[in-house]
Nucleic acid binder design. Structure first.
Lengths: 194, 194
DNA sequence: ATCATTTCTTAATCTAGGTTAAGTATTTTC
DNA sequence: GAAAATACTTAACCTAGATTAAGAAATGAT
């Protein structure tokens, strides 16, 4: 139940007093999510955001054919939530699942709104991290519109070198938007090319 | 040079005093961008965000093959910027072009930072609109991963009914991620189906 | 009004990536 | 540590959407 990684994360963009840190801590929950268990499942109304203290989560949807699409991986020090459901308070279509046993700090929507009132600096913090997240999604959308599968895979390898050998390939396929079979074919070709 | 649509936009999420409105007005620029002229071009370092008072802008990239990809349309009352370049202060790869003669309110990055200091409520305002924008991009990425071209076209028609008959089809194609020829084929099929 | 430019359509042909299926690792579980 | 489940590979075949090309329609400029 050690929230220091979270406060390090805050410190990247804002400075909090000890009192503020204590206050924020009082509004947090701590949770261990076992591998393959869910933080959020589609159809639910999301009540909280998560910060990964260690381990790794992934957020994915399942389409009408039953195919999974990974919208985000959240390794240590990343934030993840079903923003759509959290903001609209309608049932979401995101599943957030632990890839390994994962420790998270949770902030309920209610407490987050409280925090914004009591510690307005946090508005800035979340504005900044959401801005960065927005840029990343714009970039990724653009990649999906303009790059080939091979190029997207190479980019993934560059962007997430720590994940590449630690997660199942089929989940990388579900992130870059190809079938596992096709990714396998791509990789075989790349190996041969060397 | 009438900024009232902008203050209506602010009023959706925060309440400003007359004094604050005057202060903010002093930090804004007004500009008319003629049809086919640019607010921002790839390679430039973005210095400002734009709010569309009337008219319509579009943000697009050009890939290595010379193909355009539309990342966003910004009709009246929308915000648009090359967030990547604005935040990183590196050369961007977005082009923001007027589709018709367009009036915009501009906020320079410097003035926006000033505004945040003087009127902290604006942190909340921008946090909220960026959150919404993030949800929209996540949704769109998911659509690109999970829907067919036909489904994406139908969704576009639902989402932007006001644009559908007012912008060139090739730009809708560049938004949903197909060639103009293929979109034309899709539409011919839909008409026949009726 | 006329010519030039841009947009849209149609159709033939092509290809990146999907599907199906079967076999081979690799993990997980008890 | 064996059986079961999951992940990965390979290969033949298939299809949604791309490419190329040429003509028709609409829009804009003079």
């Amino acid at each position: 139940m050690d929230f220091t990684p979270l406060f390090h994360n805050f410190a990247k963009h804002i400075t909090l007093t000890k009192t503020e840190e204590k206050y924020i801590t009082s509004l947090l929950d701590f949770k261990i999510i076992k591998a393959k268990e869910f933080l959020v499942q589609q159809g639910e109304i999301s009540k909280q955001s998560a910060f990964v203290l260690n381990g790794c989560l992934r957020g994915y949807t399942i389409d009408s054919e039953g195919t999974e699409h990974v919208l985000s991986f959240a390794p240590k020090d990343w934030w993840i939530a079903d923003m759509y459901s959290l903001l609209s308070q309608k049932p979401g279509n995101l599943n957030i699942e632990a890839m390994v046993d994962t420790e998270v700090a949770l902030i309920s929507k209610t407490n987050q709104d409280l925090m914004y009132e009591k510690v307005p600096k946090l508005e800035r913090f979340f504005r900044i991290i959401i801005e960065k997240s927005l840029v990343a999604y714009q970039q990724r959308l653009n990649d999906n519109l303009s790059l080939t599968a091979t190029e997207r895979y190479m980019k993934f390898c560059k962007t997430y070198p720590q994940l590449i050998n630690n997660i199942p390939q089929k989940q990388i396929a579900a992130y870059i938007g190809v079938t596992p079979e096709f990714l396998s074919k791509l990789r075989a070709k790349q190996v041969k090319a060397k």
